[in-house]
Structures are given as C-alpha cells and as structure tokens.
Design a protein around this nucleic acid. Structure first.
Lengths: 262, 262
DNA sequence: TCTAAAATTTCATATTACGCAATTGATTCT
DNA sequence: AGAATCAATTGCGTAATATGAAATTTTAGA
C-alpha cells in the first residue's frame, strides 16, 4: 500500500521523462525550462536533467540563444520511421483524395495517440472549409466526431482514463449547455448510438459552422486503429442515408481488417 | 576516474532507453524482444522493462499476438509535432517541387538526425530515377552527396563521432578502392573541396548509375540545418557551372539564414 | 503430448536519480 | 552604467530506484 498504482509496470523515471516529451509535443511552440517545469509540476532541476538526455539523443533541440527547448530532428526521424512502418496508415491514406473528391468534403485520417486523436494526413475538399489544421493536430475525445470514433471503438485501456477525466470536467460545470444535440447526457448512451449507426457525427461543435462525420478503420479485434473523418458545411450530410455517409462507410469497411499483423 | 566520459550530463537510464528507441527506429520492421536485446547488447529483462514504459507512452506498440514490438502512434504524433514546429522544413519544402520541375531531377530535403541524414521530403523529377526511397530513409555520411553536405557544414559535435567511426572502417579495409573520384584520400581534403565549391557531388556511389548534387541550407551560425539534394542520371550536371548546380545553389541561398530563432 | 526456446516476473543489492540549496548567467529597472 | 531580479544550471547527501541472475510462465515446434 506504499505505492498508489503501477498500472503498466514500467520504469518510473522513464515514464515521467516520456511524460515530459508528451507535454512538449502537445504544446504549440518552443518552451522555456521553467514553463516545462510548471506544465509537468516538476522542479526545474529535474526537468533540466531530462532535457539534457533528450538533447543528447537529438529528440529535443535547444534554440540558438533563446535558451528555449523544442522538438529536435530525431523526433522527426522517429515519426517518419513510424509512418513507414504503419502500413495501414499508408493504405488508408491511399484513397483519401478520392474520398475527398467524391464527397467534396475535406477528408482526415487520424490515429489515437497519448490523449487524443492525432491527424496524420488530410486532403482538402472542394467546399471551402477554412480550417487551419496542421498535421499532428490533436482532436478532443468528446467534442469532435473524430474523437468520438475512438470513444466508441478505441482500445478501452487507452481511452477510458481520458473519458473519465473529461466526464469529471463536464460534471463540474454542469447546468450549462450539456449535449444540445443528443437527448441523453449519458456518455454510455452516446457510445451506444454511435456503435449502432456505425459512424459519429457532430454539428458545429469543434469548429462552429462546420459539420463532421467520422467512421473507424477496425483491426481484427474490432478496435479502431484509425478514424476517417469528413468535414463540410452542409448539415444534411450527417443523415445515415446521405451519400456522403454511405461513401465514408464503404471506404472504412474496405480499409478495415486488412491484415492480422497489426 | 570511475566513469569513462559523461559527455552531455544526462540521466544514464534515460540515455540507454533512448538508445533502444533509436535502434528500433533504425531497423526496418518489427522486432522481437530478444532481437532488440541482441542489437543493444542488453539482458532481455532490461529491454523488457524499457519497452513496458515505451508501450505505456504509446511510443512503441506490441503487435497483436506476434509479440513483436514496433513504433507506435505516439512516435507518429511526435514526428508530426516536430514537423509542424520546424518552420524551416516547411519553408525549405515549399519550392521543392519547383526546383524539381526546373531541373528535371528528383529533389530531396534532409536533416541530420542520430547518425545520418534523414530524408524528410522529396519530389520526383521527370527523369525516371527509380529510387525506392521512403521518407525517413537515412543516408550515409560519406557515400552520399547529402551526407557530405553535413560532413562539410554540419555541427561538429554531432558529425565528428560518426565521421571518425566511418574513417576507422575505411582504414581497416584499406588497400581497396578508396575514393576513386577524389585525388586525395584525406577526409579533410574532401571537406575543403566541398566547402570551396559550395556543394557536394557524388557519381554512382550510393546507388549505381545515379548522380547527385547537394547543397546546404545554412543557419545564422553557418551550420547546415538541412540539405537539398538533386538526384539524376546525367553525369555532366555535377560541373560547377551546370544549370542544375546553379539552380540548386540559388535555391539554398534563398532558404538560408531565414530567421535567427532557430 | 512432450520438448525447447522465448518472454515475463521476482528479488536482493548496488547504483542511480531526487530534492534542496548554492552558483552562474541574463534581463530589467532606476 | 550599476544593481537587483529572475531564470538556468550545477553539487551533494540521501533515499528511492534500476539492475542482473535466476525462477516461472507462456509460446512455438516436434
């Protein structure tokens, strides 16, 4: 009872160090030492030593003389190596522009990483949805169609903690506009609904004025290894029998369960 | 005198752990536990604990039931986040297709990471140079034009160890064909020559039948933060006054020293 | 089903990372 | 320009942590 919970059985210092890396990746720009320390609630000396190792490995680079720290070239290399390995990402990305062309909407490919859905690739559609969305953007679990795909089909071990944390936030500021476009406030009900439909939809939630529909690319266990999202400005497309939804579902069905090696 | 050399002052366990990550990134496919242990010369139990942390962070993913380990979604996220941050990568990549179009050659953008030049982006030219080169490919320091750019202009602290190691390999198997296209076998002479020309060229060294010219994108310190490479099949293009070389040098000059924030 | 190899867990011990405090370095204000 | 403030870095004793060898469980092959 001396130890709280050792969920994964990993090295403590490594875990915290990787936490620092994740926090740096989540931020938008370079960070100063004390900023990182504040974000991780760690003493500066600890952060400094971790960063020394990261800099040595090239994962983090210290800017010329601003002293600030940012992700380095090795991080880039790591990501590219991961991209080359995840065959399903390339496979799923293959027809992405076709999908975008057929529906006229902007098509997104995302995978679950850390605490949210990460956009890995996207193709701009005809409809001028001026999203300023870069690759690597993290979409929220509950307030995006993409995130909700992982809420419904994601690996429970990875998604559950985030879901519970978000739910607490909801409960804390309850009484306000909670789930205007769903009759039930229960997350379980939302999940049930999404699973039944086979796709998630959201209207003007993540970005006002935009609608999104998203469906999973499933692996052999029935878990979402990726999500395909279509973003547009036309509310009617979220109907189950709309051509866009049909197109999306057909696409995801084709990409699902490609191989057992993943 | 108990410790050999503590070049960077980092955490020991973190350093070794990141070494494991780097080795995994260098390999082409998924690895088993014992394979990783062999590659890092570590006992399996140690590797296993490291991997547990990596899996927990999502940097490494354990395949369905093959038991093998591979880079995970968090690695992808990290790389994409790094890509979004390195403004010069996007800036340098901007005109890459133009450069390829003007010269007809395949254009590569690379940065230095870990132990070699990592290809970050590339545009295929008109000339059918059927290189099967994926993003994230690591090019050798001495046997590629791209690598030689970093040999000449790269940060000494990062390049020197690799150079020395390679040089030892050369010395070990000396007597064989050493540097057929340079009069001197001295690496210093090669560097001097490249610096004087402003670009590096190689004929059929990395891939037989292909020629490459490469020039640096310099930062405010005069160090190469990236390299631009043109690959083709026409030997004459390596001449200093060839239009391709001029085009490349103009391009790199334009991209160099864009901002002091890097 | 049995055998062999690999993967994972356990445990005592030595090593390592931690926090606190002092030093150095950079920036701002008077 | 000098002084004061804040951030960044380094040193050190201590307590927590990572380590390697061996035991146990799981997987693959015969």
């Amino acid at each position: 009872m001396t130890n709280e919970n050792n969920h994964g059985q990993g090295l403590k210092s490594l875990d915290t160090a990787l936490g620092v890396l994740a926090i740096m990746a989540a931020q938008k720009g370079p960070l100063s030492l004390s900023e990182i320390g504040r974000a991780c609630s760690m003493p500066p000396s600890k952060v400094h030593r971790y960063l020394a190792s990261f800099v040595g490995a090239g994962l983090v680079k210290q800017q010329g003389r601003s002293g600030r720290y940012d992700l380095g070239p090795a991080a880039l290399q790591l990501g590219l190596a991961a991209l080359a390995r995840h065959s399903f990402v390339n496979a799923a990305a293959d027809g992405l522009s076709d999908l975008s062309g057929e529906t006229g909407m902007t098509a997104l490919l995302s995978v679950w990483a850390n605490q949210g859905a990460t956009v890995v690739r996207w193709e701009r559609g005809i409809t001028p949805t001026d999203m300023s969305m870069g690759l690597g953007t993290t979409l929220p679990l509950l307030n995006s169609a993409t995130g909700r795909v992982f809420l419904a089909w994601g690996a429970p071990r990875a998604v559950a903690p985030v879901r519970d944390a978000q739910f607490e936030q909801f409960a804390r500021r309850s009484g306000q506009s909670v789930d205007p476009d769903h009759t039930s406030t229960s997350i379980a009900a939302i999940v049930e609904s999404i699973r039944a439909d086979g796709y998630a939809s959201v209207v003007g939630r993540y970005i006002p004025g935009l609608v999104a529909i998203a469906a999973p690319v499933l692996d052999w266990q029935g878990e979402a290894q990726a999500a395909i999202t279509l973003v547009g400005i036309d509310p009617p497309v979220i109907a189950p029998d709309s051509p866009q939804v049909q197109c999306l579902l057909a696409y995801c069905a084709e990409k699902s369960v490609v191989r057992a090696s993943d």
